[in-house]
């Protein structure tokens, strides 16, 4: 390996992208999830992170003409159990997939950060052998949140591990042109005064709580692009029949609206998009 080999000249005109399987969401992300970089999606539980991950695992198998990578995908999960039924269901509803799509999704459970650090070096030969073009880690936060204490020394050690993992993932991404998607959890923000601002928005709200991404500032340095998904409960006016039937509304129907927003990305402006989760997957609402 010589330093001149690291030069990429002339530059390609486009970064390859992985479709999300929905034209509205693809347009929102400028074509999809970019390869060669790390994309993080953070959201509170029940917003749709895992749904989106599963959809991406299938989308990677689509032919390149349909926005896929025509390759296999790897799903590393630290949140249990693995939602195999939902994946199976989705595979029926997603169009244009090749035969037996589940055969090309490799799944490995993760139990600790050390386990992840053991898995990553093995990928050097597994990724080309299995033709993997997408790695999803769901979720990165679950690995770290139990393991480290809240002392300066432990936190320093933790951020060292962040950079190690991120650098290895970025290496794989460059070497094999992978798309890497990580999911992250949220933490509540207490006291808004001396709150460190990362990204486009002063404060992010989900279900009426002010939240920010878990794992702090040093982890934020480890991802190239950060997306935030949130939900809002909205009271819906009762329908005509209900009102006539029972009189005073002791019941109020709540409807959940879901949104996705670019917190930071090198190629995307601050914008957001509403989406819904249906049987056939996640769909953007224009």
């Amino acid at each position: 390996m010589k330093p001149e080999d690291l030069l990429r000249h002339p530059l390609p005109t486009q970064t390859p992208k992985l479709t999300l399987g929905c034209p509205i969401l693809d347009r929102f992300l400028g074509g999809g999830i970019p390869c060669d970089t790390i994309t993080e999606i953070f959201a509170e539980s029940g917003t749709g992170k895992t749904q989106l991950s599963l959809q991406l695992l299938l989308a990677a198998q689509l032919p390149i003409s349909r926005g896929g990578l025509s390759a296999s995908s790897l799903y590393l999960h630290s949140e249990f159990p693995f939602p195999s039924r939902r994946l199976h269901q989705l595979s029926f509803y997603r169009p244009h997939l090749p035969q037996n799509p589940l055969d090309r999704i490799f799944v490995e459970p993760l139990h600790s950060t050390d386990h992840l650090l053991d898995v990553l070096p093995r990928l050097d030969f597994l990724v080309p052998k299995l033709n993997i073009k997408l790695i999803v880690i769901d979720s990165i936060a679950a690995l770290f949140r139990g393991e480290y204490e809240n002392t300066p020394l432990e936190l320093k050690r933790r951020s060292g591990v962040f950079f190690k993992i991120s650098s290895k993932l970025k290496f794989l991404a460059r070497e094999f042109g992978l798309a890497v998607v990580l999911t992250n959890q949220v933490v509540d923000v207490m006291g808004s005064s001396n709150n460190l601002r990362i990204g486009n928005s002063m404060s992010l709200c989900s279900s009426g709580r002010t939240v920010c991404a878990a794992l702090g500032l040093s982890w934020a340095n480890c991802v190239n692009m950060r997306l935030f998904m949130w939900r809002e409960e909205e009271k819906v006016g009762m329908s005509e029949e209900e009102r006539l039937g029972e009189g005073d509304g002791s019941f109020q129907r709540l409807q959940t609206r879901r949104f996705i927003r670019v917190v930071f990305a090198p190629h995307l402006p601050d914008s957001s998009c509403e989406f819904v989760i249906r049987r056939e997957g996640i769909l953007g609402v224009s």
Binding site: P3, L6, H9, L11, K170
Partner: peptide
């Protein structure tokens, strides 16, 4: 404009030092 940007993608600190040392020649 794009042709006049020489882009190096670095994945380890060894590569980073190697490229910085190589810059003078480049």
């Amino acid at each position: 404009f794009m042709d006049n940007i020489f882009y190096f993608r670095i994945c380890t600190y060894t590569e980073q030092i190697a490229v910085v040392n190589y810059l003078e020649k480049f």
